[in-house]
């Protein structure tokens, strides 16, 4: 079954289910676990195709993660799915000791990340999972931008390496950024649009919004913005980030997540050490989510194309005051 690239908006979690079936067909050791959210996470697709390799654990996420530990320690490759709030929040210690500390090849499909989960509200909107999982030793963190990239991320997760991996997926249908299913995640940083004035660095659901922001900056301000998609937040590939910010001298990050511990911090860390430039952040402040439609929630917290563009305008005002010429040549990594 050749994977089919999507063209219309579709949720990244849909790619999780579809790609999992492909993996299951190719590799007998792939098993899937879920916690009574198999339809929401789409692991149901795997469950229907390979019922004997699918374990629905019911509403018991801690048990699921520790079960995955046992399965992986015994030669299987478990894909565990539930909402991000429960994968990273509820079962943190189980993931930490059983999976990360043991350096086991377990893939966590954390669906419904961010506030675009929508109506269920703050209790379900996970906005600090990237921070938690970045901080967890050995854990890799992947946040695809659209369905096609998510499909690649799930397929590649099998071959990539044997380290644990956290994949953040989303609930709402999301516009397509990658016309085809990419050949590879290419280290996890893609330049989607070139520009010389400012770098917009986005992840997940904010990537298409960053592209839109760049278009509006060009249209309305004559600003040429470069757009980077960071799909692998850990380990973050510093080369392309440094190359871009050393060219533009100023950047804005955009994520559907707390600005603490997420993409903003990851990028700032890279830049601060090797090429400090002002980096403004679009993301969640010190607050919880609220109930509303996905789009209304995104707007409520300024997680929009215009939110990114406005932040870019502020950053551009500052640029002549604080930007410096490059300190080093282009090879920092």
């Amino acid at each position: 079954m050749a994977a089919e690239a999507k063209t219309e908006p579709i949720a990244t979690r849909q790619a999780y289910g579809a790609a999992l079936v492909e993996l299951g067909e190719a590799h007998e050791e792939v098993v899937a676990l879920d916690a009574d959210l198999a339809v929401s996470t789409q692991s149901i697709k795997f469950g229907k195709r390979f019922p004997e390799r699918f374990f629905n654990c019911g509403a018991a996420e801690a048990n699921m993660m520790s079960m995955a530990c046992g399965l992986a320690a015994t030669g299987k490759v478990p894909y565990c799915s539930t909402f991000a709030i429960f994968a990273a929040g509820r079962a943190y210690d189980q993931v930490r000791l059983g999976i990360a500390h043991n350096e086991l090849k377990v893939r966590i499909g954390a669906s419904h990340g961010g506030v675009s989960l929508g109506e269920d509200g703050a209790s379900h909107q996970m906005i600090e999972d990237i921070a938690l999982m970045r901080a967890m030793p050995r854990m890799q963190v992947v946040v695809p931008a659209d369905y096609n990239q998510a499909y690649r991320a799930v397929i590649d997760s099998f071959e990539a390496n044997d380290e644990p991996m956290y994949l953040r997926l989303g609930r709402p249908a999301t516009p397509i950024v990658y016309k085809e299913i990419p050949e590879t995640l290419a280290g996890g940083v893609d330049v989607l649009r070139e520009g010389k004035d400012i770098t917009l660095i986005a992840t997940g659901h904010m990537v298409w919004r960053a592209v839109e922001a760049a278009e509006s900056l060009e249209r309305e301000d004559g600003v040429e913005a470069e757009v980077l998609n960071v799909s692998v937040l850990k380990p973050i590939q510093s080369g392309p980030v440094l190359e871009s910010v050393s060219k533009t001298g100023v950047a804005v990050t955009a994520e559907e997540h707390r600005v603490v511990g997420g993409l903003a911090d990851a990028v700032r860390q890279v830049a601060a050490e090797q090429h400090p430039v002002p980096i403004f952040a679009v993301g969640m402040g010190d607050e919880f989510g609220v109930s509303g439609t996905a789009e209304a929630c995104m707007e409520h917290f300024g997680l929009t194309a215009s939110g990114i563009a406005d932040r870019a305008r502020e950053a551009l005002l500052l640029k002549p005051i604080v930007s410096r010429p490059p300190l080093f040549g282009p090879e920092w990594t």
Partner: peptide, 14 residues
């Protein structure tokens, strides 16, 4: 107002 932006009644009790 249930589950709408700005409303007091959240998706889950608050």
């Amino acid at each position: 107002g249930l589950r709408q932006i700005g409303a007091q009644l959240q998706g889950h009790p608050d």
